[in-house]
Design a protein around this nucleic acid. Sequence first.
DNA 1: ATGGCCGCCCTAGGCGGA
Length: 265
Amino acid sequence: MSLKVATWNINSVRLRIDLVTKLLADEAPDVLCLQETKCPDDLFPEKALHKAGYTHIVKSGQKGYHGVAIVARVPLENASVKQFCGKQDCRHIQATAKGVEIHNFYVPAGGDEPDPVKNEKFAHKLQFLDEMATWFKRAKAKTTAKRVVVGDLNVAPLEHDVWSHKQMLKIVSHTPEEVARFEAVVAAHKWIDVPRLFTPHDEKLYSWWSYRAKDWETSNRGRRLDHIWASPALDGAATGVKTLTHARGWERPSDHAPVIADFAV
DNA sequence: ATGGCCGCCCTAGGCGGA
């Protein structure tokens, strides 16, 4: 059996519902995990998704900010959300599809100043990553379940996950402090970085390009903020990965591109 | 190196994004 999982920070699911259904038509993933839906649950555009054949939907949204959802054409079981940092800010939802526990995350961006004393948003981001590590360490001790983590984790950990390692070292998303926290989350569950199984570490790989560039494609100052991780139980199960870079060039695009992985499960 | 653009919200300037 195969499982095709997509993740996409959509930056408003209502504004871009036509792009979502286009992605579903083009790629037909079993499961699509969305972040930054910016949509209260009762206003989620379910009708268009049902029409596209995606009748299994779980979501955790609120007005204006953040928000995550899992949209699937296969049944979703045991859906739940976890709160981090004592906040109810819609940054995680999980559900099981085809026997695989899928976690969809939207990690705090962290603001501009990479100093947790001066900038409480950065402190929030570090604490969020710490809580992820603690949680996954316990989860791993309990079971060897097939698990996948996806989402906008807002950290580009590797040198070639950013356009300029040197120039990004003091820029939030690539600072040594948050990368160390990020690596601790990975170590806590021995997560496998799935896209990097297929793209060598010395090759650039991005999933986000700023809206602010005059021409995102030409300047190509990207970052790999969107991730797909597999648990050790899925070691060797990934059969392919792609980043849909061209979706960044669609009409009225999200600033993130979808990332898609296939697994034999 | 910086500034550049988006989308949301008690529809307008402030916030959050990264």
